[in-house]
């Protein structure tokens, strides 16, 4: 067991898989010589060489197109899109090509690839380098969508994503890169589609993802001081979605609050909430509440971005509102 940063966990997870499987290669901007603009891929060029760890031009369509072509012809590429906002310039390759190829060909095409990207707000980068776009990916049939919140999950879920036979969008949260956590020694391989219960409480179920998980845990701690005991579920993966864990918890607590960074309309919480409303309606003891960013582009100023992002205080207030 060693303490690792979320940032270093990325390189560890990739190295684990590249050591195991020669068909794993990496493509992306500044990932090789520079070790990534977020320093998530430091050391991989030295360890695996320039044939397997490849710096690309600023050409997101070429990066993801090449990853797709390589995946359909026998490799297992890990491509990086530096900031998830940049998916907007290559979304055709993601949504029209990668996501649909297997279906349109009646299963002829295998696409075992991973697209990693730095997602999320809190870094004062402004509206084009701060978005949480995991809900874009969630809305496209054919993609798996993963967003870890801890260093251990970064390693384990990255390994699972590389081994998965389907295309996986792997959203790393840029405000978590410096966070630390214990990571077991040896090979780690997680399972996609398994939520984690981070805290067990009887009064309310709080469902969160990525950087909103520690935020929700902070809120839960404040709530405990007021005698309200929350269960905090880290979804970890939006597709596959672990409905079972959420539904079991809501059945026990009778209350659901989702905490997401997506802007209000069509954020992932809306899907979770609609499922729970349909399937757990008679177990609910109060209104379901979503905590989101307001439906605005993220501003850059400290005061405004902090106001936009769900804070522990806002989560506490919304939970208390949900409990009536």
């Amino acid at each position: 067991m060693a303490e690792l940063t979320y940032r270093d966990a990325v390189a560890r997870g990739i190295a684990q898989e590249m050591t195991r499987d020669e068909s794993v290669i990496m493509l992306g901007e500044d990932i090789a010589g520079a070790g990534g603009v977020f320093k998530t891929t430091v050391g991989l060029l030295d360890q695996f060489g320039p044939r397997r760890v490849r710096d690309t031009p600023i050409s997101e369509q070429a990066i993801l197109g090449a990853a797709m072509g390589a995946a359909m012809t026998g490799l297992r590429p890990i491509a990086e899109v530096m900031f998830s906002d940049f998916f907007a310039v290559c979304w055709d390759i993601v949504a029209n090509q990668i996501a649909k190829a297997r279906y349109m060909t009646a299963g002829q095409v295998d696409l075992p690839l991973v697209i990693r990207s730095a997602n999320g707000g809190g870094s004062r980068f402004g509206a084009q380098h701060s978005q949480s776009v995991e809900n874009w990916a969630m809305s496209i049939p054919g993609l798996k969508v993963v967003a870890p919140s801890t260093p251990e999950d970064v390693v384990a879920l990255l390994a699972a994503a590389v081994r998965d036979p389907d295309p996986v969008l792997f959203f790393e949260h840029k405000s978590l890169y410096a966070s630390k956590g214990e990571v077991p020694d040896g090979e780690l391989v997680g399972e996609l589609g398994q939520a984690a219960v981070r805290l067990q409480g009887n009064d309310v179920t709080i469902v969160a993802l990525a950087a909103m998980v520690p935020r929700a845990l902070e809120a839960a701690s404040q709530l405990a001081g007021r005698g309200v005991h929350a269960t905090v579920i880290d979804l970890r993966s939006l597709v596959p979605l672990d409905v079972t864990t959420v539904a079991e918890s809501v059945t026990a607590t009778g209350h659901l609050v989702t905490v997401e960074e997506n802007p209000r309309l069509c954020g992932w919480g809306a899907e979770v909430v609609s499922i729970v409303a349909e399937e757990c309606f008679y177990d609910l003891d109060g209104p379901i509440v979503r905590v989101t960013t307001p439906h605005v582009p993220l501003p850059s100023a400290d005061a405004l971005e902090d106001l936009a992002m769900p804070s522990a205080e806002r989560i506490v207030a919304e939970v208390l509102r949900a409990l009536g």
Binding site: I63, A66, M68, A70, T73, G74, L75, D92, N96
Partner: peptide
């Protein structure tokens, strides 16, 4: 026959990826 692609231009980078695979292997 690795596909017919209906979004103009999309398959050029995909063909590059196949060529990368051929080169790598």
């Amino acid at each position: 026959m690795m596909g017919s692609y209906a979004i103009v231009g999309a398959h050029l980078p995909i063909a590059v990826g196949a060529a990368l695979s051929a080169s790598y292997r």
